[in-house]
Lab assay of single mutants.
Amino acid sequence: MGFKLLSKLLVYLTASIMAIASPLAFSVDSSGEYPTVSEIPVGEVRLYQIADGVWSHIATQSFDGAVYPSNGLIVRDGDELLLIDTAWGAKNTAALLAEIEKQIGLPVTRAVSTHFHDDRVGGVDVLRAAGVATYASPSTRRLAEVEGNEIPTHSLEGLSSSGDAVRFGPVELFYPGAAHSTDNLIVYVPSASVLYGGCAIYELSRTSAGNVADADLAEWPTSIERIQQHYPEAQFVIPGHGLPGGLDLLKHTTNVVKAHTNRSVVE
């Protein structure tokens, strides 16, 4: 069995187990497998329904001669939608809004960016022009300005110390501490036991640490421990890039980060 097929099978099995364990909360999309990078042309966006009122959005972007996937989250909030992270750029984010209108038909009224990198804030200006209120932590807003990236308009308070959590509509926002970046936030959907790890969490097929220019490698494993301790009931975990899975993604990420750190020390 090929690795790609095995990865998709694991996603399907995880979703099936969740649907059985929580039949009222989960209505997993039966329309197909989780979209992969090879299936999404740059400039297009796919939506994948995880649970009743919960979707991931998947886009792709060219970077350094390669094409990478990027995940975000959409959560229903009454007759409105909360968006977590842009679709990595203005063109993708405009396509995301169009796809949401086509498939869901509810307005996106608020959006949260989970850290300051372009795959999370690139497209904020498109959201703002569409009347979406954009939010991020003060740290993310400051770092985005320093980096020359787009800056969300509103500040999220109460997320300055490791372990801080605040309720934001249908989700809980959690600051686990520094990891992929010093400002990275985690998003949890309690009604569906869905954990969105953003770039602080890796997919299972990833074996290298990737972009760690703004990471705190020493603190990252401790931050992941905080996530595990705060959300032990999480059933569906979405990484910032690639295929979702279960809580095993947290341990896998820790292993990859520690291996990278150990290699760096040896070198």
Rank of each mutant, 00 (worst) to 15 (best):
L156S: 02
Y175T: 00
E157P: 12
V256M: 06
L159D: 03
N71L: 02
D214W: 05
G198Q: 04
G198F: 04
G65K: 09
N71D: 04
Y231F: 08
S22I: 10
H117I: 01
K251C: 06
E267F: 08
T36C: 06
P152L: 03
R76P: 04
H115K: 00
N71A: 07
F26L: 15
V146S: 13
G245A: 07
S62F: 05
L82T: 08
R46Q: 09
V212R: 05
A144L: 13
G122R: 06
S139M: 13
L24I: 15
D52Y: 09
H180T: 01
F174K: 00
A90E: 12
G169E: 05
G89I: 02
L13E: 05
T207Y: 11
A192R: 10
T93F: 02
S16L: 08
H117P: 00
A15N: 08
A21W: 09
V45T: 07
A218D: 12
I186P: 00
Y34L: 15
Y231G: 00
V124K: 02
F236S: 09
A51V: 13
Q228L: 11
S22M: 14
Q49V: 11
D77E: 09
S160D: 12
G163S: 09
E267G: 06
N149M: 13
S62I: 06
H260C: 09
E157S: 11
D214S: 07
S155A: 13
T109I: 11
L243G: 14
G2N: 14
Q103S: 14
E233H: 12
L73I: 07
V256D: 03
D248G: 13
G131D: 09
L247E: 11
R46M: 14
S193D: 13
V11A: 10
Y175E: 01
G198E: 02
A51Q: 07
V108L: 08
Q103A: 12
D216V: 10
Y202E: 05
G197P: 06
T207F: 09
T93R: 00
F168Q: 02
D164Q: 15
D29N: 09
S139L: 12
A21V: 14
D29E: 10
H180V: 00
E150Y: 04
T14Q: 07
R128Q: 12
Y135C: 05
I201P: 02
I58M: 12
K102T: 12
I40H: 12
S30F: 08
S162K: 13
G131L: 06
I84K: 01
V108E: 03
S7G: 07
W88R: 01
S191C: 05
D85S: 00
P69V: 15
E267I: 06
A213Q: 12
